[in-house]
């Protein structure tokens, strides 16, 4: 049987919104199907082996931690991440992690470097943080589906010309509260502001990402009624 190898990037720093919920769901979904599951981590100063994992995950962090991570990521992990992207590993970056995927992130007077996996830039603009439940419509190759979650970000993200978003905002702010786009989706690289435990709220997405990471099709599990009810609960909170 196949084994899903997940590598968390900076798990001790980039975990501010209960990001471990995503890992818990990936693990359970694999184990319940008899698939193997391995969880690795790569922190500050540690090299990254692009072949060692099929799924790279990065969550959000506090501003101060994000500064340290941005510099380290460019220095020690940029090439490995590009190599992982080229071999179609899934890269899921949420919230603070998402902001570091692009070319740069303007944080106050600081311009944080990005790893340049996708074409986007993030800036701080006057105005309040964008906070609230959010729902988007997204197609990850299995037809249009809804992703529901919670966003809380000061930065505004703008995608480069022609760079595909993860989805269209149905309710909420999305990348910048203006253009109706949320997240980014290039190949198997996905960034989103729907933070923290995103996969528990959208089990279909967890399963889809496992499929993309392993290049297989999954059989549905016998009883996903609670998962479906939780998804509907998150959608209801987001008004969709």
């Amino acid at each position: 049987m196949a084994t899903l190898r997940v590598c968390s990037l900076y798990p001790d720093l980039m975990n501010i919104y209960a990001d471990r919920g995503n890992i818990a769901v990936l693990r359970a979904r694999c184990e319940w199907r008899g698939l193997g599951f391995e969880h690795l981590a790569s922190g500050l100063g540690e090299p990254l082996d692009p072949e060692a994992a099929d799924f790279f995950y990065m969550g959000g962090g506090q501003d101060r931690d994000q500064v340290a991570v941005a510099e380290d990521m460019v220095e020690t992990k940029r090439e490995a991440l590009h190599a992982a992207q080229d071999r179609d590993a899934v890269i899921l970056a949420v919230c603070g992690g998402y902001q570091l995927l692009g070319s740069s992130y303007q944080l106050g007077d600081l311009a944080l470097p990005g790893v340049g996996l996708v074409d986007l830039r993030t800036v701080r603009e006057p105005g309040p943080r964008l906070i609230g439940n959010c729902a988007i419509s997204s197609d990850l190759g299995s037809g249009p589906r809804i992703i529901a979650g919670f966003e809380n970000h000061g930065g505004r993200t703008y995608l480069g010309e022609g760079e595909p978003p993860l989805g269209r905002v149905l309710n909420g702010f999305g990348n910048n509260g203006r253009d109706g786009f949320e997240g980014v989706h290039r190949g198997n690289t996905i960034g989103t502001y729907l933070h923290g435990p995103l996969l528990p709220k959208n089990i279909w997405l967890a399963d889809r990402l496992i499929e993309l990471a392993l290049g297989i099709e999954l059989e549905p599990l016998a009883d996903d009624s609670l998962e479906e009810a939780a998804h509907m609960s998150a959608r209801r909170a987001a008004g969709v």
């Binding site: 919920g21 818990a24 769901v25 359970a28 528990p200 709220k201 609670l226 998962e227 009810a229 939780a230 509907m232 609960s233 998150a234 909170a237």
Partner: peptide, 11 residues
């Protein structure tokens, strides 16, 4: 958010 609490317990 009862359903999401229940899901947390399941996982």
């Amino acid at each position: 958010r009862a359903e999401e609490m229940a899901l947390r317990l399941k996982y």
